[in-house]
Amino acid sequence: MTVHVENGSAWKRFWNRGGWWRAVLITVVYAAVYELLGRLVGAVFGGLIDEQNLFGDPSSIFFGVALPIVLAAALLAVFVWSVGWWPGILGRQPIAGRPWMWLAVALVVIPIVIRLFATNWSAYSVAVVLTTLLLGLCIGFAEELITRGVGVNLLRKGGYSERVVMLLSSLLFGLLHSVNVLSGQPVLNVVVTVVYAFGFGAMMYLSMRVTGSLVYAMLLHAATDPTTILATGGIDAHGATSGSDGLLSVAALFNYAYILLALLAIFFVKGRVRPKLAATSAEAPELR
């Protein structure tokens, strides 16, 4: 059942109705804006970006990767403010997690630790490491806000069960990464990335549920991307600064675990946030 919230401006009423297609709409718009900003930043600051060695110096990392994300995240933050969702998105989750969901947190944390040991730290300057960590924070904030924040909020407002919310929000996360094909990546690589993103997205949903806050999912995500980049020497590829192949192979096995747990979770995730309460952020949760 979809709830129609009648109070507030027409803008707020439109988004407070929720629903899967609004979640898809905002995700597509965000992805398009991000791509546009990336091209704009590239045109303006192209001289500071080393396309052949993107992670060779801090300016290349910041202008080549981080700045478009920062700008897109800022616009997304304004959107969340405009509809009055900040308290609900960053507040306590309206439906409690279950103990088994801690498995998702463990499956994310363990490979992060492995990659820390696998990284060839001598290949990077302190400035490059710090800028890459900053990039991770930007990615974690932006991608979790659009999918597990805005996306989940819209799906809950649409009256869907938490099983469907997890499934659809994870698919949205995969959709977000399908735009990699526009940067010239081979289609097969993009497909693999989308499947991985679906599994990882489910881990972030479960982590958000069991910790009770989107903030912890943001931090887990923020630690995943930079440790992967530093350990492998690049984005979605092994670069010249790649670390220990043995440890990286072990860490890569967890990607399969994400997908497996995501599929299993479809059968175990239960509950529903009552739509009338999902539409307002200050009220206590009521389940059915």
Rank of each mutant, 00 (worst) to 15 (best):
V3H: 12
V3C: 04
G19R: 04
W20R: 12
R22Q: 13
V24E: 10
L25S: 04
I26S: 09
T27N: 10
V28E: 05
V28S: 10
Y30R: 02
Y30G: 10
L36F: 11
V41W: 00
I49N: 02
I49W: 02
I49M: 01
N53Q: 01
F55R: 02
D57M: 02
F63E: 06
V65R: 01
A66S: 15
L67K: 10
P68F: 12
I69V: 14
V70S: 10
V70C: 14
F79T: 11
F79D: 01
W81P: 02
G91M: 14
R92C: 01
I95N: 01
A96G: 13
A96H: 12
G97M: 05
W100N: 07
L103F: 15
V105E: 07
A106G: 15
I110W: 08
I112W: 12
I112S: 09
I112E: 02
V113F: 14
R115G: 01
L116R: 08
L116A: 13
A118T: 10
N120D: 14
W121Q: 08
S122H: 08
A123F: 03
Y124E: 07
S125A: 11
S125E: 03
T131A: 15
T131K: 06
L133C: 11
C138H: 03
G140Q: 09
F141M: 11
E143W: 11
E144S: 05
I146P: 05
G158H: 01
L168E: 06
S170F: 00
S170T: 01
L172K: 04
L172T: 00
L172M: 06
L175Q: 02
L176E: 05
N180K: 01
V181T: 09
P186L: 11
V187C: 10
L188T: 11
L188W: 13
N189P: 08
V192Q: 12
V195F: 08
A197N: 00
A197G: 00
M203Y: 03
M204K: 08
Y205L: 11
S213G: 09
L220C: 03
D225C: 06
P226M: 05
P226Q: 01
G234R: 05
H238E: 13
A240G: 12
T241H: 10
A251T: 05
A251P: 02
A252K: 12
A252E: 06
L253G: 15
L253K: 12
A257D: 06
I259R: 05
L261P: 04
I266K: 06
G271L: 04
P275K: 03
L277Y: 13
L277P: 03
T280M: 12
T280S: 11
S281Y: 06
E283M: 13
P285R: 00
